[in-house]
């Protein structure tokens, strides 16, 4: 038996927001939303997180579903990792996110854990975050006073700190489906494909027009207090043809843009080296895809 708390299961979004706002409008750190619970239940059990009340989101129909219209992809906050893998359109709508879902924990966790929950846990090693950053995803936050959209690139404020106020819920995540002449890739470096925490995760997007890179995104996981873009490395690439020399320079810059730590999974030096190697590899693959694949 672990720490005690209350559990409520509101039937719709308004009811959930009412409960979250209970303690005076700004919310109460003791009232926490419960999505898939695959992190939260473990943390409550280990008493790393304290909660007085959990607001289960499992019955809220408005949080479900995946929509695609006019090139915009929107997933409800209740979308699980398995939902991403099951949706045949996702391979085109978010190739890197599908790659990350395939190496995310194990089946039972994928059946329960939500993409939005993975984002909101704020782990620097969260596997869906580099892909979503590489897609320029935007997070919708709803509160009693209304909704607001925040680019995911601005969502994380510091280690396990984010833009969501205690009385708000993430209701959806949206991005533009990749352009036809673009590549979007993710690689997770870990001890094995399943059931392992990421040592380094890298996602890249490369779009091309008339032989030049028009958009470059490089997102790095598990090498800083938050998942982040390597903006200086991206800036080297945009407007240029990606020669092996330029890719090498951008990969070196991405390693410099990272600030990893030593921990049980790897040393900081190994992580920096891996950012360099993986960024070079993914950019090379992406450039080959967009230039040879037509």
């Amino acid at each position: 038996m672990f720490a005690e708390f209350d559990l409520v299961m509101p039937g719709d979004l308004d009811e959930a927001l009412d409960i979250l706002a209970e303690a005076g409008g700004d919310g109460d750190a003791g009232i926490l939303p419960l999505a898939g619970g695959t992190n939260l239940v473990v943390d409550l059990r280990a008493r790393r997180i304290r909660a007085d009340k959990l607001v289960g989101l499992g019955r809220i129909a408005a949080l479900r579903g995946i929509e695609r219209s006019n090139g915009r992809v929107t997933i409800g906050a209740g979308t699980t990792l398995s939902d991403i893998l099951r949706d045949p359109g996702m391979v085109e709508a978010a190739p890197s996110l599908v790659d990350s879902a395939r190496v995310f924990a194990g089946q039972m966790v994928r059946n329960t854990a939500t993409v939005a929950g993975n984002v909101c846990c704020g782990s620097p090693a969260a596997d869906t975050v580099p892909p979503l950053l590489s897609l320029d995803a935007e997070v919708t936050l709803a509160g009693k006073g209304g909704t607001r959209n925040v680019p995911l690139a601005d969502f994380f404020l510091g280690y396990q700190e984010d833009e969501r106020r205690p009385a708000e819920l993430v209701t959806k995540i949206a991005w533009d489906a990749p352009k036809p002449k673009s590549a979007n890739l993710f690689y997770k470096l870990a001890r094995r494909k399943g059931d392992a925490i990421t040592v380094v995760g890298v996602a890249v997007t490369v779009a091309v027009e008339a032989g030049k890179c028009t958009t470059a995104r490089i997102a790095l996981g598990a090498v800083a207090p938050v998942v982040k873009r390597a903006r200086e490395a991206e800036a080297l690439l945009e407007g240029e043809a990606l020669t092996p020399e330029l890719i090498e320079a951008a990969a070196r810059q991405a390693a410099e843009d990272s600030s990893p730590i030593d921990d049980v999974r790897a040393s900081a030096d190994y992580r920096r080296h891996s950012v360099h190697a993986l960024t070079r590899r993914l950019l090379s693959q992406a450039w080959a895809q967009v230039t040879e694949g037509g």
Binding site: M9, G56, M108, N111
Partner: peptide, 15 residues
């Protein structure tokens, strides 16, 4: 019909 880890699932969510 879908497998979950019962150790991570709160019974109260399953009405």
């Amino acid at each position: 019909g879908e497998a979950v880890d019962s150790c991570l699932t709160l019974t109260g969510t399953l009405e």
